[in-house]
Computed example of a mutant assay.
Amino acid sequence: MAQKKAEYGSGPLFRAAGVVYGVMMAGVLLVLANMLLVLAPLMVSLAGGSTLLAAGVVAAALVPVGPSLVAAAYAFNRLLAGEETGVFRDFLRGYRSNVRQALAVWLPYLAVMAVVVLNLLLLPGTFDAGNPGLAAARAGLLVLGLLVATAGVTAMLLVARFAFRVRDIHRLSLYCLGAQKRVSLGNAGILFISAFLLTATTAGLLIFIAGPVMFLICLNSRPLLTFIEAKFTLREPALT
């Protein structure tokens, strides 16, 4: 009987169901940890049409995103490694143990993103065929924003996995953009598609895709974490 129970609990269908459940649970926790962001469209509508006030509301709502991404990355990394003690428990542990460093790393990226978005909002909204510089400026800001977002997410993955100093996390997150091009392009693609879906449909979609998007980023970033561990961490010599 014990053998049958063990086989049932280790089968591929059981593991797949566990992953699906873990992704759903982490998605719920991400939404709960970012209720300000979920409610941001309502708060923006109450801002009375002020662009600067709306940008400030969204920027403030994005502050808790960093620690919640670290917590989700911590839980998903343990889930992918088969070391989880329950996604709910791992998420809370990852949040509590990393919240200060996550904020210290996340806020500079958020500040740069706020500047990029503000410049995009201040550009004329109408397309002028006689002013190609305007289109080039808009495209350049979009690419810059995507690069910053990709580096920021990479930094959150590093915070969840390693105990590096804040400045080293910043350096490594930028370094990985070039050193791990495939992973970085994959994460940028995931972020771009997610942002496109949110802008093309409704921001409420974030409630349903937050968990799967972060899981895909963690899954895609496993080679990056292995690379960082092999290149920038010390391993104890094997006993002979």
Rank of each mutant, 00 (worst) to 15 (best):
V143W: 00
Y21Q: 13
N131K: 12
F88S: 15
A139E: 02
A188R: 04
R167Y: 08
R100L: 04
V153G: 07
F14P: 05
A136Y: 05
L177N: 04
W106R: 04
I207Q: 12
T240C: 14
R138N: 04
W106I: 03
F76L: 05
A71M: 08
C218D: 08
G140Y: 01
L79F: 03
Y8Q: 08
P212L: 01
A188D: 01
A40I: 09
G49M: 00
G94S: 07
M156Q: 15
I190F: 07
V213P: 00
L225V: 10
L42E: 15
P212A: 00
Y109C: 11
L121Q: 09
A54L: 14
V166H: 11
T126K: 06
M24F: 15
V148I: 09
L191M: 14
A2H: 12
A102T: 14
R222P: 11
S68H: 03
V70W: 03
A6K: 09
L224Y: 05
L157T: 07
L62H: 14
R93F: 11
D168C: 00
M113W: 12
D128I: 12
R165Y: 06
S184H: 00
M35R: 15
S173N: 05
L52Q: 09
A33W: 01
G49K: 00
A179M: 13
T199R: 07
L157Y: 10
L158C: 02
L172S: 06
A210S: 15
T199V: 04
A75P: 10
G49D: 00
T240I: 15
T126N: 07
G178V: 01
L172F: 08
V38I: 14
F227T: 03
N34L: 01
V105D: 12
R89L: 14
L185A: 11
A151R: 00
G9D: 11
R15F: 09
A136M: 05
L224Q: 09
S68I: 03
F227I: 02
F215I: 04
V23L: 07
V183H: 02
L205M: 10
D128Y: 12
P124H: 05
L121G: 01
T199E: 02
M214S: 15
G48H: 14
R138K: 11
T202D: 11
R165H: 09
V99A: 06
A6Y: 07
E236N: 06
R171S: 08
G94Q: 08
V58H: 12
S194L: 07
R171A: 10
F14Q: 13
L144V: 10
V105N: 13
I169Y: 12
P67R: 05
L158Y: 01
R93G: 11
R93K: 15
A59I: 08
E236G: 03
G189F: 05
N220S: 15
G186F: 03
A47L: 05
F232P: 03
G186I: 04
P212G: 02
A129D: 10
K231C: 02
A179W: 11
L205V: 07
V159R: 01
G145F: 01
S10E: 13
